[in-house]
Design a binder for these strands. Sequence first.
DNA 1: ACCATAACTGTCCGATCGGTCAGAACTGAC
DNA 2: GTCAGTTCTGACCGATCGGACAGTTATGGT
Lengths: 182, 182
Amino acid sequence: MARSASAMRGQILESALRLFAVHGFRGTSLQDIASDAGCSKASLLYHFAGKEKILTELLTPARDALATLLDRVAGLEGGRLVEETVTGYVDLTLRFRREIRLLFEDIAEMSCHQDLDVMELANGLLDALAGRSRRAPARVAAWMVLGAVFITSATDDEVAPDEVLRAEMIRSALRALDHTPS
Amino acid sequence: MARSASAMRGQILESALRLFAVHGFRGTSLQDIASDAGCSKASLLYHFAGKEKILTELLTPARDALATLLDRVAGLEGGRLVEETVTGYVDLTLRFRREIRLLFEDIAEMSCHQDLDVMELANGLLDALAGRSRRAPARVAAWMVLGAVFITSATDDEVAPDEVLRAEMIRSALRALDHTPS
DNA sequence: ACCATAACTGTCCGATCGGTCAGAACTGAC
DNA sequence: GTCAGTTCTGACCGATCGGACAGTTATGGT
């Protein structure tokens, strides 16, 4: 063997990203990555100081891209600020989809696992949020609200008292769904 | 020792929920839970058939509540459907905050960890999405969009081609932020 | 051809994990 | 007090993990 160092490193990173995105970080062992990349586990640790360093190297480009975006919008304000930030953020997440997915597959695996089959319920919730519509705009907005409420509830940021938080979450969600109050 | 069975079970579930919410499911060992609950690891496995069963018992109430919500809105349609679903979903996530948090702490720990300190960047992004406003409605909406875009990008649901997905994500996000197009 | 260096590997290690099991400790009914 | 049944535990097990290290193999400059 003994390919060029950068080639092997690239192969390792590629394998790691794919496996992390399927089984999660903790759910993927160094041996798994080594087997997939076609080298020994010891070779991994020759190229990378440790398992965490592999993860760091995988996530750094996304991090840097986010930092760049924030720099770019630092001087803006008002409507331009929000528009540029949203557009940039969306593009960024789409570009680094696999990296984001690896952060979530721990959850996904946990949800699919065991008796409680959450995925079926999640699809039901998605349908209801989309108002039973199958059209793409409604479905995308439904996904957005699904994730938005989920994450916002999980935050411990103390951004607002619970009553305010609840009211604003509902209003914001309905706006995202393009819902005209009846 | 030798308390009543249900008391010990309750103590174990309480400890497990708290520890899972701090260190994640995989990041919490049976020994951790046992120490926190004030019993031996073997005692855990007397009350619960395995580690996964503890998680199942913790998440089942939330799952059942979601199923109940979906049943309740099953007969509705149009505006009422969307309103009831959103309100119910928000209430549900707020009620089961700790359970949701435990699903996320794997991510949180991973993000805070290592060199790349993502949290500072996330706060910057949050500020920009909120249009630099410190008011609660803007901050809540910013959190919503942060999570919405993140999760929607991570999905592999093939809900729409990437160009459509991108456009709808941006539109939906701007609506959630109550942004009036300039 | 030679050799310093880079690339790579087999093997071992300590730690930790979830889980088992035989038996001790406790409990309430009688 | 006795005893059956419940509750609990220390000790142990096999598996797996991330990592260390000495030694082997390939590479490129001379």
